[in-house]
């Protein structure tokens, strides 16, 4: 019955390994990220729909608001995570050539992570520039000191 000289049964040897050692990992991640995208999409959609037709200064001010930039990033990060899993399945199903398959699967693993980082950096820089633009509007401390000198108080 046992061909490998071990006392472990066949069932005992495979139990816990699941499909390619990952079990329901891919399935669950796909579903959880789908729900995240579903919940975030209305907010991201509102931010983007509002931005339609804006000139650059207005778009910069709108996207640069921290809540808007944060919502866009959360949506993009969740969507890119979800995409990685979806594209992986499509490549596994339709690309049968070994080299092309390995190349695309490897690329897919890193491409979306890279694009998430690009999105994070771009949105952070837009928000930071918008923040600087606002702090520039506040009267500088020099005039504040000058006015306090006139009144004579510290």
């Amino acid at each position: 019955m046992d061909m490998h000289g071990s006392l472990r049964t066949n069932l005992g040897r495979v139990r816990g390994l699941g499909a390619a050692g990952h079990g329901s990992d891919h399935f669950l991640k796909q579903r959880v990220s789908a729900i995240a995208v579903l919940l975030l999409a209305p907010f991201a959609g509102y931010v983007l729909a509002s931005a339609v037709g804006m000139d650059h200064s207005r778009a910069q001010a709108w996207v640069g608001q921290p809540v808007n930039a944060g919502l866009l990033f959360a949506f993009l990060a969740a969507a890119f995570f979800h995409l990685r899993l979806g594209v992986q399945v499509v490549v596994e199903d339709y690309i049968s050539g070994k080299a092309a398959r390995m190349l695309l699967l490897g690329l897919n693993q890193f491409l979306w992570l890279g694009l998430s980082l690009v999105a994070a950096l771009a949105l952070f820089l837009v928000a930071a520039r918008e923040d600087r633009a606002h702090t520039a509007e506040i009267p500088p401390p020099a005039s504040d000191r000058a006015s306090s000198d006139q009144t004579g108080s510290v």
């Binding site: 910069q60 996207v63 594209v87 694009l115």
Partner: peptide
């Protein structure tokens, strides 16, 4: 549609980068 949305998200990223890049680029995208 999933594959099409992959392209759409890259387009959205291009738009965000255009907002960052400033006006000559943003106007072209707009």
């Amino acid at each position: 549609s999933g594959m099409a949305l992959a392209g759409a998200l890259i387009g959205l990223l291009v738009w965000i980068i255009a907002v960052l890049a400033g006006d000559p680029h943003y106007s072209i995208v707009n």
